[in-house]
Design a protein around this nucleic acid. Structure first.
Lengths: 144, 144
DNA sequence: GAGTTGTATTTAGCATTGCTAAGTAATATT
DNA sequence: AATATTACTTAGCAATGCTAAATACAACTC
C-alpha cells in the first residue's frame, strides 16, 4: 500500500514529463501550414466526430459559441469546412470538413506521427515496450 | 528488429494519449487564478532557472523579445516579478520572481500535482509501476 | 578614438483567439 | 397567444503572437 506522499512524488515527475513531450508534439505541427492550433484542433474534432453544430463543436473545444463562430468563418473562407443549415432545426447550423479539409488534416497527422516515430526509432526495443504498456494507463488517467 | 510501420503505429497511439493527458493537466491549473498559461509558463522558467534577461527568457519560451517585454510588464505590474538593470550590461535587464511570485507558483504546482495524484491513486500498483518506468523514456523522447 | 556594426530592450501597430453583452431568428413552454 | 429558451451572430474588450522601427549601449575596425 503506497503512501499518498509517494504518489505525489510520482505526480511531480510524471506531470512535467508528459507536459514537455506534449509541447514538442505540438510544435512539430505547423511549419508554415497556415493553420493555428485552435483551427487544427477544431478540425480534428470534426474528423473524429463527423458533422456537428456550431454549439456542439464549441463545447468539444471548451470554447464559447461566438469564438467558434469566428473560427468557423475563417476555416470556411479557406474552404476547409462547410456550413449547412440543419434539416431539423432552422436556428442551427451543421459544420463538417470538406475533402480539402480532411486531406490537409490527414497530412498533418501523418507528419506529426512521423516526427514522433523518428524519435521512437532511436529507443531500445525495451523502451518501446514500456511505452506500449504505458499508453493504456495514460488513457485511463485522462479519462477519469 | 521492428519495422518502421510498427513504430509509426506506436506513434499514432502514443501521440494522442500524451496529448490528451497534457490537455487535462493544463486545464487543472488556473480556475480563477488570474494567470494565463503564458504567464505561468514564463514564471516557471524563472523558478527553475533563476534570474534571466528578457531575451533569454523569451528564448526559453520560444517567443520574440517584444512579446516577452509586454508579458513581463503585466507580471511586474502585479508584483509577481521584478526588473533589475544588469550589472554587466547597461542595455540589458534581469528579471526574477518576487517572493509573492514564487509562492503563487508553488501553490499552483502543488494544486496540479494533487489533481494528478488523485488520479494516480485510483490506479493499481502495477499501473503506477509502469508509469515510473515510462517517465525516463518520455523524457528521453522530449530531449532528442 | 571615430565610425560602423551588432545587441538588448522597448514602442507601435497588425492578426488571432478567448471572453461577455446584446441582437435576431426559430423553437418550446405555459 | 404570450413568454421563455435556444442557436447563432455581431460588436467590442483583453491577452498574446508577430514584424518593423526606435533607442541605448557594446564591440569592432580602421
Amino acid at each position: 500500500m503506497p503512501t499518498y506522499e509517494s504518489i505525489l512524488l510520482l505526480a511531480g515527475e510524471l506531470r512535467p514529463a508528459v507536459f514537455r513531450l506534449a509541447r514538442h508534439l505540438r510544435q512539430a505541427r505547423a511549419d508554415a501550414e497556415e493553420l493555428t492550433p485552435s483551427q487544427l484542433s477544431a478540425m480534428g474534432v470534426l474528423l473524429r466526430e463527423g458533422e456537428l453544430q456550431i454549439g456542439e463543436l464549441a463545447a468539444y473545444e471548451q470554447v464559447r459559441a461566438p469564438s467558434m463562430t469566428r473560427l468557423v468563418d475563417h476555416l470556411e473562407g479557406r474552404g476547409l469546412l462547410r456550413r449547412t443549415p440543419s434539416p431539423t432545426d432552422k436556428r442551427a447550423i451543421v459544420v463538417g470538413l470538406t475533402d480539402q479539409g480532411s486531406e490537409l488534416l490527414e497530412a498533418n497527422r501523418q507528419r506529426r506521427n512521423e516526427w514522433l516515430a523518428v524519435r521512437l526509432e532511436k529507443l531500445t526495443e525495451a523502451e518501446r515496450a514500456t511505452l506500449r504498456t504505458a499508453i493504456p494507463v495514460l488513457r485511463k488517467i485522462a479519462e477519469t
